[in-house]
Amino acid sequence: MQSGVSRTLLIVLFILVFCPLRAAEAAIHILANEAVKTQTLSPAQVRLIFAGRTQFWPNGERVKVFVLHASNPIHTEFCRNVLQIYPYQLERIWQRITYSGQGDAPTIVNSIEDMVAKVAATPGSIGYVNTETPPEGTYLLNIGERE
């Protein structure tokens, strides 16, 4: 009986440690302003940018991040499938950098249309969309291996 409990606990521990969140389903794409120029980012680099930890592009331009509200299903899907973290974890990181003088949280927009308009109009900006056709002034940034 005791060994059965121990085995179950070991299996649960193994799953917790070695099984990350669901793999990316690629329904959400990273949208960047045309001035950004970077073509590919690793998943970890994307996470650093959306967590507010990378604040400048390699060319010295300020990174400006736009996200949807935490309750928006597209934001939830983006967090889970692209960043592979939960929305509350992202919010916790934003609060930490904002209230310790380390950076600024992303700007929250009301809709995908608003997101597209803001990214197109703001040099150095980045966001995400659930379509495969980038509007004028923007492009879809690839998520690949580390540069």
Binding site: Q95, Y99, S100, Q102
Partner: peptide, 28 residues
Amino acid sequence: FDWQMNLHIGRYKNRHWLYSATQDVPQT
């Protein structure tokens, strides 16, 4: 992109424990 280092000079915040970076901020 993969590595950042910051130097803080002045009255810096101690960030060495899980909640110490913002232990002064009630909602965090």
